[in-house]
Design a protein around this nucleic acid. Structure first.
Length: 273
DNA sequence: AGTCCGACCCGAACGC
DNA sequence: TGCGTTCGGGTCGGAC
């Protein structure tokens, strides 16, 4: 379930650890990984390319190469691992980039939902099929912008925040957390939020993401960075805390779980209105 | 247009 | 080493 903070952590690790290195050999182990280009052609194209930069857009990881941009989506269980020489990949490793430094970059993905797509360097297109909304930590994501998105919509506010066309990079964990911090019920019709509530929500989304990035993201079963694991799971206030007491001082309510937009949704029935 | 839902996967958790 | 079933989660495409 890597969301923006986890992908950003991996991006920063790649930037520090492999940028400047060159792909000596590429192997697409699972042919389903390669989107839009045949696996063999993708491996051939990657061979010899220098890794010039590591970028991110929403939850997409962007590896900028000499002639290509490799667009990686980790989906739920995708991980990038840096392996030394001689390490043996297990059955979940779906692609291997052997670098000139003789280290190996592995893409390991237990549930096989992750995708790799190759586009020309400098391609102006979207990383995925949909047009992504603004970066939640960027200048465009303002209370005014979000209010315009929410206005007139009947869908639950949570569903709107999960929709990458409106804002790029939020997933189930951070939406639940930001709504708790903002004191807003995830089931509220989007259009019912006041300007003040929207302003609070934007602030809490940004604050939650920043705090998580500072902690290298949330480590769940399926996520780990290239290096040490993130620790933001220790700061989660509602996500997967169903049945536990609310963390807010003076609140003795118990965290509830419901399903919204097909996703498990966690909230405090007292603090979130 | 906006909203909803199933497909895609497979390990974990659960029920018996 | 128990076995069968259900669940979850991000994106996309199709249905309404």
């Amino acid at each position: 379930m890597p969301e923006l903070p986890e992908v950003e952590t991996i991006r920063a690790d790649l930037e520090r650890l492999v940028v400047g290195d060159r792909i000596a050999e590429a192997r697409i182990v699972d042919p389903r990984l390669a989107q839009g280009t045949a696996p063999g052609a993708m491996a051939a194209a990657l061979r010899g390319q220098k890794i010039r930069q590591a970028g991110r857009r929403g939850k997409y990881l962007l590896m900028e190469l000499d002639a290509y941009r490799l667009i990686i989506h980790l989906r739920m269980t995708g991980r990038m691992l840096l392996a030394g020489t001689g390490a043996q990949p297990d059955k979940h490793v779906r692609a291997i980039l052997t670098l000139r430094s003789s280290r190996s970059l592995w893409f390991r993905d237990i549930r096989r939902f992750g995708t790799w797509r190759l586009v020309p360097a400098g391609d102006a297109g979207q990383p995925g099929a949909l047009s992504l909304g603004p970066e939640p930590l960027g200048d465009e994501f303002t209370p005014g912008y979000l209010l315009a998105v929410l206005t007139g919509r009947k869908a639950p506010v949570k569903a709107i925040l999960l929709d990458q066309r409106h804002v790029a990079g939020l997933g189930n964990i951070y939406v639940d957390e930001a709504l708790f911090r903002a004191g807003l019920d995830p089931r509220r019709p989007a259009g019912s939020l006041t300007p003040e509530e929207t302003r609070r929500l934007v602030g809490e989304i940004r604050g939650t993401l920043r705090e998580s990035i500072a902690n290298r993201g949330t480590s769940m079963r399926d996520y780990g960075g290239l290096e040490e694991l993130g620790s933001f799971q220790n700061s989660l206030r509602v996500y997967r805390r169903t049945g536990e007491q609310c963390v807010r001082e003076g609140c003795d309510a118990v965290i509830c779980r419901t399903v919204l937009g097909g996703r498990g949704t966690h909230y405090c029935p007292r603090c979130q209105r």
